[in-house]
Write a protein that binds this DNA or RNA. Structure first.
Length: 270
DNA sequence: CGCTACCTGGGT
DNA sequence: ACCCAGGTAGCG
C-alpha cells in the first residue's frame, strides 16, 4: 500500500522515465477516479501535453505539464502507477490510462478503486486539493526538531493520531508512524503536546530514519516498471502483533487509535 | 476534533 | 461467510 516511500519511489521513476515525454491522450476507464474536471474534459485537456517535472507533496504526485497545467495523482490505500508497452494486457483494476509517445502507457491501477487524479491550473488545483494547508515535509532538509516541536505543541490528541494528520506533518502513514514511535521509544497513546525535548529529538531522528530507509529500499510495493521494492519484510512492529519486540523480546501489542491499527511494544515505548 | 463512508480482494 | 486494509473527504 501507498505511504510516502512507495509514492516517492514512483515519483523518482517518473522523473527518470516519463519527464520530458509527451502525453498523446488520456482514457478514463473509471469516471469516479477523476476528481476534476469532468472525465471528458479531463481527457480532452490531457491531449498533446509534455510532462515537465515530477514532484511529491505529502502523498500527492504532482506532474507539471506544458500549457501551465498541473496533474495531481493520489494513490489513497492501494493505488499505483505502471509504465508498460501499449500492447501489454490491461488489468481489470485500471482506472485511467495516459497514452505516451513510443507506444507506451502510464496506467493508474487500484483494486479498491479509491485512487484519484485531477488536472488544472496550478493555483486552482492547489486551492481545490487544499495543498497549501499541508504541513511541513518530513523529508525536507528544513525539517528540524524545532519544526516538529512547533507542529506538535498544543495538540492534545494521541501522538500517533497527530502524526497521521498531513496538515501537521506531511510524510507519515500508518506503518511509518508506528515504526517511528517504536524507534523513538514513545507510547503512541501519549498526547502530542506532552513530549519532552529529548523525546521530540528522538522522534525527529526516527521519522527521518524510517522514511529514508523505506525510500532507500524502494518501498514495499512494485515500482513504475513492476520491480518489487525491498522494504516489504523490513518491519520491526507493524503488523507483528504477539511477535517479540526486536529490541526487548516483549510481545508486540495492538490497539486502535483514531480508528487506525496501532502496533507498539509496551516495554520499550513510554 | 473524531467518526464514517468509500470499494474490492485476500486473509481468517 | 465474514471481516479488514498502509488514506482522505466530509460529516456532526
Amino acid at each position: 500500500m501507498a505511504e510516502v516511500p512507495e509514492v516517492e519511489t514512483i515519483v523518482r521513476d517518473l522523473r527518470s522515465a516519463v519527464v520530458g515525454r509527451s502525453i498523446c491522450g488520456a482514457e478514463v476507464l473509471q469516471p469516479e477516479a477523476v476528481r476534476f474536471p469532468a472525465p471528458a474534459e479531463f481527457a480532452e485537456i490531457l491531449t498533446k501535453r509534455q510532462v515537465l517535472a515530477a514532484d511529491r507533496r505529502a502523498k500527492y504526485i504532482l506532474l507539471p505539464l506544458s500549457g501551465d497545467l498541473l496533474l495531481a495523482i493520489h494513490f489513497m490505500l492501494w493505488g499505483t502507477l505502471t509504465l508498460t508497452p501499449r500492447t501489454a494486457p490491461r488489468p481489470d483494476e485500471t482506472l485511467i490510462v495516459w497514452h505516451l509517445d513510443r507506444d507506451e502507457e502510464l496506467r493508474l491501477l487500484d483494486t479498491l478503486g479509491y485512487a484519484r487524479a485531477a488536472v488544472g491550473e496550478p493555483a486552482d488545483l492547489a486551492e481545490r486539493l487544499d495543498l497549501n494547508a499541508l504541513g511541513p515535509e518530513a523529508l525536507d532538509p528544513d525539517f528540524s526538531v524545532a519544526v516538529l516541536a512547533r507542529q506538535l505543541a498544543k495538540r492534545r490528541s494521541a501522538i500517533k493520531t497527530v502524526l497521521l494528520n498531513q496538515r501537521v506533518l506531511a510524510g507519515l502513514g500508518n506503518r511509518d508512524a508506528d515504526e517511528s514511535l517504536w524507534m523513538a521509544g514513545i507510547d503512541p497513546q501519549r498526547t502530542a503536546a506532552s513530549l519532552t525535548d529529548d523525546e521530540l529529538a528522538r522522534l525527529h531522528d526516527a521519522i527521518c530514519a524510517v522514511l529514508e530507509e523505506g525510500i532507500e529500499l524502494r518501498g514495499t510495493q512494485r515500482d513504475l516498471f513492476g520491480v518489487q521494492g525491498r522494504a516489504k519484510h523490513r518491519r520491526n512492529i507493524f503488523e507483528r502483533t504477539r511477535q517479540p519486540c526486536p529490541r526487548c523480546q516483549t510481545p508486540i501489542q495492538h490497539l486502535k487509535l483514531g480508528g487506525r491499527n496501532t502496533h507498539y511494544c509496551p516495554t520499550c515505548q513510554h
